[in-house]
Amino acid sequence: MSRPVKRSASLALAAVLAASLSGCSLLPKEEVALAPPLVKPAKENYQTKPAEKGSITVGINATAYFESVHTFVAQFTGQGGRVQDVLVRSGDVVKKGDVLVRLVMDDLDLKVKEQELALEKAKYALKQQRVNRDEDPDAIRMAALQVEIEQLKYDRLAEQYNSKLLKAGIDGQVVFVEDVQPGDYVDTYQTLVIVADPTKLRLTLSTDSPELKNVNVGFPAEISLSTDRGLNTFKGKVVQTPSSAPQTLNKELAEKYAKTLYIDVSDLPKDVEIGAMADVKITTNKRDNVIKIPKSGLRSYLGRTFVRTLEEGNKVREADVEAGLQTPTEVEIVKGLREGEVVILQ
């Protein structure tokens, strides 16, 4: 290549580079990204409670009601039938022998009266034979047999008649009446009325508390009862527990016994009525001078039991612990925590 041609090529390359440089200078300069502002993390607020020493009491606190110790369950035992009248209502006071429910008689009451008359006529005829001056031994014997016959007829009719009447077996207060109407059919051994003796009462406490299994016959109970004289406290004693309940084939009664305590109350006022409510406290275990925390401070995860504590104001530490007695609000810590350590509540 000749020298003039080389020179022309060099000049052209220089022009291209100059144009490129001048073009780049026309683009805006890229802005430098600003660093995000530093934000001071907010201090987490914990609800805490120091572990403390004290007493912890475990037991049952529940509401119970008074029921009679002695009740009479009125049922037709011979045969059922259709109801003619229900003569009592809940709350009525009855005497032993009072009629509670009457079945349809089908003229049986009239037949009893007719037979009563026949019996009286037979007795009168016998009496006349015995006072007759011309006393005939055979006539007297036949008259006496007639009296026996009429008496047997009357007794059988009277038994049928009485089988249609449901009577109170004790003096007391009606606490239950089955919802039956005249014309309804009732079966044999169907409970229609329950009469309770209001002078002999005990407390009935039904509960699903896990502490129920730890209550034994003879355990003392504290009773709080509101009366016309204000709030009064009484002493009671457990007389029946699920484990001491009598065996029964009645499914409903067996289910009731399985979760019920019966409590006798000392010096109960006479004005306490069936159905009155009372607060009952039974202690099953108590420990003094133990470390305890609120129950919401105890944590469990994958079989591990632990607490979270707060140290030096903001340091959180986890500590495995062994729990002891527990109430609905507190728990005893047997191992793993000292008095005064600050526990984080959930």
Rank of each mutant, 00 (worst) to 15 (best):
Q173T: 08
Q173P: 00
Q173G: 01
Q173K: 09
Q173C: 00
V174L: 03
V174D: 05
V174F: 06
V174P: 07
V174Q: 02
V174A: 05
V174T: 05
V175Q: 02
V175Y: 02
V175G: 02
V175N: 03
F176I: 01
F176D: 01
V177L: 07
V177T: 14
E178M: 04
E178D: 06
D179M: 06
V180L: 08
V180H: 07
V180C: 08
V180N: 05
Q181M: 09
Q181C: 01
Q181D: 10
Q181F: 15
P182G: 02
P182Q: 09
P182L: 11
G183S: 13
G183F: 14
G183A: 12
D184K: 00
D184Y: 06
D184I: 09
D184G: 00
Y185V: 12
Y185C: 01
Y185A: 12
Y185N: 12
V186P: 08
V186F: 15
V186A: 12
V186L: 10
V186G: 11
D187W: 04
D187T: 07
D187I: 04
D187Y: 05
D187F: 03
T188F: 03
T188W: 07
T188L: 14
Y189G: 01
Y189W: 04
Q190V: 09
Q190E: 15
Q190L: 14
T191D: 12
T191N: 14
T191R: 15
T191I: 13
T191V: 14
T191G: 07
L192M: 13
L192S: 08
L192I: 05
L192A: 08
V193I: 10
V193W: 10
V193F: 12
V193M: 08
V193L: 09
V193S: 07
I194R: 14
I194M: 13
I194V: 13
I194Q: 07
V195P: 08
V195D: 06
A196P: 11
A196S: 15
A196F: 13
A196H: 13
A196N: 09
D197N: 14
D197P: 06
D197V: 08
D197W: 12
D197G: 07
P198G: 05
P198V: 02
P198T: 01
T199C: 03
T199I: 00
T199V: 00
T199F: 04
L201V: 02
L201I: 06
R202Q: 10
R202H: 11
R202E: 01
L203M: 06
L203A: 08
L203R: 11
L203V: 06
L203Q: 09
L203I: 11
L203G: 07
L203F: 12
